[in-house]
């Protein structure tokens, strides 16, 4: 294991980061996901050594580094606003860390040139930061951090200041560089898509607490926390009001869930596993309800249709083809059908 946070706590004025435990593995791309104001940056700055935790321990490759100052830890931070040194050229920015560690000028320039090549910024080396575009500045900030990296890089919302298309390109680039260099990346973001795209594992911080750590697939296929599930944008999560053998009641609707060992407080009905039809039909699926169309929104490849079964509003994902064939209109009557296996209990 590479980085280990044990029972970290920190209070800053009225803000408090309650006890937190986390392990990040060697060569992992770890994404810490959470809304703003939850303390993600504070956590990164604790790892970097810019803040000292009130209690707890930070271990790096087995060694306790809790009290080691940032310049001796070597975990460079990349901030959202790049924080390039405005009075230095790109080259001077990149070699700054190496020079601070006593690397000779010639060697530093050679290393910086290599890193610049990796990031495709070689033609920019003599420019001043003010003369660079946002994407270029971001690459320079990344190069400046990578060139001194001793195995762990800290990225604080590094892509939230660039526009969508550039962000997607840089995301792919971050992924490539992480793989190519084998550096452990700890990346903080509030963007769910970014977290899922980049992270080998994703940690979700909500309400000042690390609520869940797992692979992106687990995050979406096996929710275990309704707040986390809602935060990552999952729909059709309902509290269970009533429970009887093989069935549960959610918002007054009796849903067949099959044999489950014990009662669960929540169910999640997978939106892509619900079928809409104009007529009722014979099916092995045990859940079939008449419903009314509320509204819908077009997504990139599917349409999210909201239908009401009594007091229960269900999101259903259908293809554009089905959307047209069903002649969906507001207030229209349809049937929603799903198997008990489409219902996840947690």
């Amino acid at each position: 294991m590479t980085l280990e946070l044990r029972s970290i706590r920190k209070r800053l004025g009225s803000f408090e980061l309650p006890q937190l435990d986390l392990t990040v593995e060697e060569e992992e791309y770890f994404v810490l996901l959470g809304p703003s104001g939850v303390g993600k940056t504070v956590l990164l700055e604790i790892i970097a050594g810019l803040l000292t935790p009130d209690s707890g321990q930070i271990r790096w490759r087995g060694q306790d580094i809790t009290t080691i100052p940032p310049e001796r830890r070597g975990f460079a931070i990349v901030y959202q606003d790049y924080a390039l040194f405005p009075h230095m050229t790109v080259m001077q920015n990149i070699i700054y860390g190496l020079r601070s560690r006593g690397v000779g000028r010639i060697e530093a320039i050679a290393k910086a040139s290599q890193t610049a090549e990796l990031l495709n910024i070689s033609p920019l080396l003599e420019r001043m930061p003010q003369a660079l575009s946002g994407g270029e500045q971001q690459r320079v900030a990344l190069a400046r951090a990578l060139v001194v990296s001793s195995g762990l890089l800290l990225l604080d919302e590094p892509l939230s200041a660039v526009d969508l298309r550039l962000r997607q390109r840089l995301q792919r680039e971050f992924k490539r560089i992480q793989q190519q260099t084998g550096t452990t990346f700890m990346h903080v973001t509030h963007d769910v898509d970014e977290a899922v795209l980049l992270g080998h594992r994703v940690g979700v911080m909500l309400g000042d607490r690390l609520r869940r750590v797992g692979s992106p697939a687990d995050l979406f296929r096996k929710p275990d926390d309704p707040d986390v599930a809602t935060f990552v944008g999952m729909r059709n999560i309902f509290p269970v009001n009533d429970y009887e053998k093989g069935f549960c009641r959610a918002n007054g609707v009796r849903i067949h869930i099959g044999e489950r060992a014990e009662p669960y407080p929540h169910i999640w009905i997978r939106p892509e596993e619900i079928l809409l039809s104009r007529e009722a039909f014979e099916s092995s699926a045990r859940n079939q309800f008449p419903c009314l169309v509320d509204d819908w929104e077009f997504q990139d490849v599917l349409v999210n249709v909201r239908v009401r079964i009594g007091d229960l509003t269900l999101n259903v994902l259908v293809t554009y083809g089905s959307f047209e064939k069903l002649e969906i209109e507001r207030g229209g009557k349809l049937y929603a059908t799903f198997k008990s296996s489409a219902v996840h209990c947690f």
Binding site: E71, A83, F85, L154
Partner: peptide
């Protein structure tokens, strides 16, 4: 001076003294 600029310099390996003379003072 945005304090993040000084923080970055620290994480890159510069001591407080070096940050003061190479970043804060020139800026």
């Amino acid at each position: 001076i945005p304090d993040r600029i000084e923080k970055v310099a620290r994480t890159l390996g510069a001591s407080r003294t070096r940050v003061f003379f190479t970043i804060s003072l020139p800026m």
